[in-house]
Design a protein around this nucleic acid. Structure first.
Length: 467
DNA sequence: CCCCCCCC
């Protein structure tokens, strides 16, 4: 390993412009956090001098990077989030931890540094262990697997394996509402339909609420409404309320505890924290964060698009007020550009803290906001996201005027009776075609990714695609 | 759709 790069010890919180060459020395199985639904995965990285640092991945980054960071391989890493571990947990002071996210640039280097690892760890026997731990094959076939644990593995790894396996089974059986499993997230959309992304593995058919999980997923796919972000398309999906009683007063959602809900709010937005980043670099295909430079073509780790383009996307953290109170909320993409009266490229090139001359920082008149509330497990308050902003003048004379807001708002999710015989479990090109036909502005790809045995293990990839 | 953060 050459020395033109920094070493792990050279990188502290606040260090900029660094690149460290590392070998992936250990890769642990993803775990679910004890006190929150957060998934995390720890990885140990080692530099040329044998120093190590713990790197952590969270949530969807775990699946996104699972093929990028392979055990024993060498990488150049830059722009990880570097911080001291939480004082509450850290064993010794000054311990550094890296967080690897979509911002982090990772470049594979074709070098064999396994001798470095072997000289530091007795690592060879351990090599097959991580992939074994994370395997679902054993569950699906209900084969008995003998796993021998010793010393601290009994208390640590063994405990977590058991917990995770149990959680996975429970998740598949019961949870088809708002959850994630192996990269799958099924969440309610603003129009009460479902958005499914990522991969999931159906280990076993479970019945819940009178339907098997495969039927429920079939329903979601056959319904497949997707919201689009533009106001014109929005108005065809949602009728904007006009009666005062249809708006939610902010005081009623401050400190909200519900899982996920949508509200119409009539009020004003303003930027209170001027010194924020009003954009992020994104993938032009999936909008996820990118570590590339503007305009670069790159393979996106999230959507796996091989020729994704890095483009800026607007983002703003603001305060929403009505006569009864205020909440902080985030807007991304269209609503952010609309509010700021700017666009992502201008926002990206802006070097100074903005002024009212360079963008809109507050509203003069009331506007209508469609707000999504998401409970934060560890924080007392909800997080709010502004999905749409509608100027009341835009809906004057609209055919929806006077209509009550669509009936789903604030209501629990309902599963529809199965309307189709089409099953995910015979996913072939015919199914993919029929999905395409029913889809209006998007297509859904259904691919059988792997089939370990004839009936129990499937991986299905469903994604929205703009046409 | 998306950002941030996140665990022992």
């Amino acid at each position: 390993m050459g020395d033109k790069f920094q070493l792990i010890h050279d990188v502290s919180p606040g260090t900029t412009g660094w690149t460290v060459k590392v070998v992936v020395a250990e890769k642990f199985s993803p775990r679910v956090a004890q006190r929150s639904p957060t998934k995390y995965q720890n990885i140990t990285l080692m530099d040329s001098e044998g120093s190590t640092v713990q790197a952590t991945l969270y949530g969807q980054n775990i699946t996104a990077f699972q093929d990028e960071l392979l055990l024993g391989k060498t990488y150049l890493i830059s722009n990880a989030l570097v911080k001291e571990t939480n004082a509450e947990y850290k064993a010794k002071s000054g311990e550094i931890q890296w967080t690897i996210s979509g911002r982090t640039r990772i470049r594979r280097v074709e070098e064999n540094n396994s001798n470095l690892l072997i000289s530091t760890y007795s690592f060879t026997d351990f090599e097959d262990f991580p992939k074994y731990m994370d395997s679902n094959v054993d569950i699906s076939k209900f084969d008995t697997v003998l796993l021998t644990m010793w010393e601290t593995f009994v208390d640590n790894e063994c405990k977590y394996i058991c917990q995770n396996l149990r959680k996975k089974l429970i998740l598949i059986g019961k949870h088809l509402k708002v959850t994630s499993f192996n990269g799958l997230s099924i969440s309610t959309k603003a129009d009460s339909s479902f958005f499914i992304e990522g991969e999931f593995e159906l280990v076993e058919e479970f019945k819940s609420w009178g339907h098997t999980n495969s039927e429920i997923i079939d329903n979601m796919i056959s319904e497949k409404h997707y919201l689009t972000s533009t106001t014109s398309k929005l108005s065809s999906k949602l009728s904007v309320p006009t009666a005062e009683k249809d708006f939610t007063e902010i005081k009623n959602i401050q400190g909200l505890k519900t899982v996920q809900q949508f509200f119409w709010i009539k009020g004003k937005a303003s930027v209170k924290v001027l010194n924020q980043t009003y954009w992020y670099m994104s993938c032009n295909n999936c909008n996820k964060i990118s570590s590339e430079n503007y305009g670069d073509i790159y393979p996106c780790v999230f959507c796996k698009c091989t020729d994704a383009k890095a483009i800026p996307r607007a983002k703003v953290y603001m305060q929403l007020t009505d006569p009864t109170g205020y909440i902080n909320a985030t807007a991304i993409g269209n609503p952010a550009e609309y509010f700021l009266q700017s666009n992502a490229e201008i926002l990206m090139n802006q070097t100074l803290i903005p002024t009212a001359a360079s963008m809109r920082l507050s509203m003069d008149e009331d506007e209508i906001f469609y707000v999504k509330a998401i409970t934060q497990e560890l924080s007392p308050d909800c997080k709010f996201e502004i999905l749409f902003i509608v100027n009341p003048s835009q809906i004057a004379g609209d055919k929806n005027k006077g209509k009550a807001p669509v009936e789903h708002i604030g209501e629990p999710i309902k599963f529809l009776e199965p309307t189709t015989k089409r099953s995910l479990f015979h996913s072939d090109t015919d199914d993919a075609q029929s999905s395409k036909k029913k889809c209006d502005k998007s297509t859904i790809e259904i691919t059988k990714k792997k089939s370990m045995n004839s009936k129990s293990l499937f991986a299905v990839h469903i994604k929205k695609r703009n046409v």
